Measured scan of single mutants.
Amino acid sequence: VSEWTEYKTADGKTYYYNNRTWESTWEKPQ
C-alpha cells in the first residue's frame, strides 16, 4: 500500500493521501 502517505494536519489529526489517485481519507487505508 506504498502509494498512501500519512500526514498530520495543523491540529494534530492524521490523514492519508494517495499519490496515485490523488485521493485523501481520514481512515487508515487497507
Score class of each variant (00 low, 15 high):
Trp26Met: 13
Thr5Tyr: 10
Asn18Asp: 06
Glu27Arg: 07
Thr25Ser: 14
Ser2Glu: 14
Glu3Gln: 09
Trp26Glu: 13
Val1His: 14
Glu6Leu: 02
Glu27Phe: 09
Tyr16Leu: 02
Lys28Tyr: 05
Glu3Tyr: 06
Thr5Gly: 05
Lys13Gly: 09
Trp26Gln: 06
Tyr17Trp: 08
Ser24Leu: 15
Tyr15Pro: 01
Tyr17Glu: 12
Tyr16Ala: 02
Gly12Tyr: 04
Glu27Gln: 06
Thr5Pro: 00
Trp26Arg: 00
Pro29Trp: 07
Tyr17Leu: 11
Thr5His: 11
Tyr15Asp: 07
Thr5Ser: 12
Thr14Asn: 03
Lys28Thr: 11
Tyr7Asn: 10
Glu27Ser: 09
Thr14Trp: 04
Glu27His: 11
Trp22Tyr: 14
Ser2Ile: 10
Thr14Cys: 12
Tyr15Gln: 01
Thr25Lys: 12
Ser2Gln: 13
Thr21Gln: 03
Tyr7Ile: 12
Val1Leu: 12
Gly12Lys: 03
Asn18Leu: 03
Glu27Trp: 09
Thr25Trp: 07
Glu6Pro: 03
Glu6Asp: 02
Tyr7His: 06
Lys28Asn: 11
Asn19Val: 08
Thr14Gly: 03
Thr9Ser: 09
Thr9Ile: 00
Gln30Gly: 13
Trp26Ala: 08
Tyr16Ser: 03
Lys13Leu: 12
Lys8Glu: 04
Trp22Asp: 15
Tyr16His: 02
Ala10His: 13
Asn19Pro: 05
Ser2Gly: 14
Thr5Val: 12
Thr25Pro: 09
Pro29Thr: 05
Lys28Glu: 08
Ser2Thr: 13
Ala10Met: 12
Pro29Asp: 10
Glu23Lys: 01
Lys8Thr: 14
Gln30Trp: 12
Ala10Pro: 10
Lys8Ala: 10
Trp22Phe: 14
Thr5Trp: 09
Thr9Trp: 04
Thr9Gln: 08
Trp4Ala: 03
Asn18His: 04
Gly12Met: 00
Ser24Glu: 11
Glu27Ala: 09
Lys13Val: 12
Lys13Thr: 09
Pro29Ser: 05
Val1Gln: 15
Gly12His: 03
Thr21Trp: 10
Ser2His: 09
Tyr17His: 12
Tyr15Arg: 03
Trp22His: 15
Asp11Val: 02
Tyr17Val: 15
Tyr16Thr: 01
Tyr15Glu: 08
Lys13Ala: 09
Thr25Gln: 12
Thr9Leu: 08
Tyr7Met: 15
Lys13Trp: 06
Glu23Pro: 02
Arg20Pro: 12
Glu3Thr: 06
Glu3Arg: 00
Tyr15Asn: 02
Thr14Lys: 10
Glu23Gln: 03
Tyr15Met: 11
Thr5Gln: 09
Gln30Phe: 03
Ser2Asp: 14
Lys13Arg: 15
Thr9Val: 04
Thr9Ala: 06
Glu6Thr: 08
Lys13Ser: 07
Trp26Phe: 07
Thr5Ala: 12
Gly12Arg: 00
Thr21Arg: 02
Asn19Lys: 10
Arg20Ser: 11
Thr21Met: 03
Lys13Ile: 06
Asn18Gln: 03
Thr21Leu: 08
Glu3Met: 07
Glu23Tyr: 05
Trp22Thr: 14
Ala10Asp: 13
Val1Ala: 13
Trp4Lys: 01
Glu3Gly: 09
Glu23Leu: 04
Pro29Asn: 05
Thr9Met: 05
Arg20Thr: 15
Glu27Leu: 09
Thr21Ala: 04
Lys8Leu: 08
Trp4Pro: 02
Ala10Trp: 05
Tyr15Ile: 04
Trp4Asn: 02
Trp4Gly: 02
Ala10Glu: 13
Arg20Glu: 13
Trp26Val: 02
Pro29Met: 08
Gln30His: 12
Trp4Thr: 03
Asp11Lys: 05
Glu23Asp: 10
Thr25Phe: 12
Ser24Gln: 11
Glu23Ile: 03
Ala10Tyr: 02
Val1Gly: 12
Thr21Lys: 03
Ser24Pro: 07
Glu6Gln: 12
Asp11Ile: 01
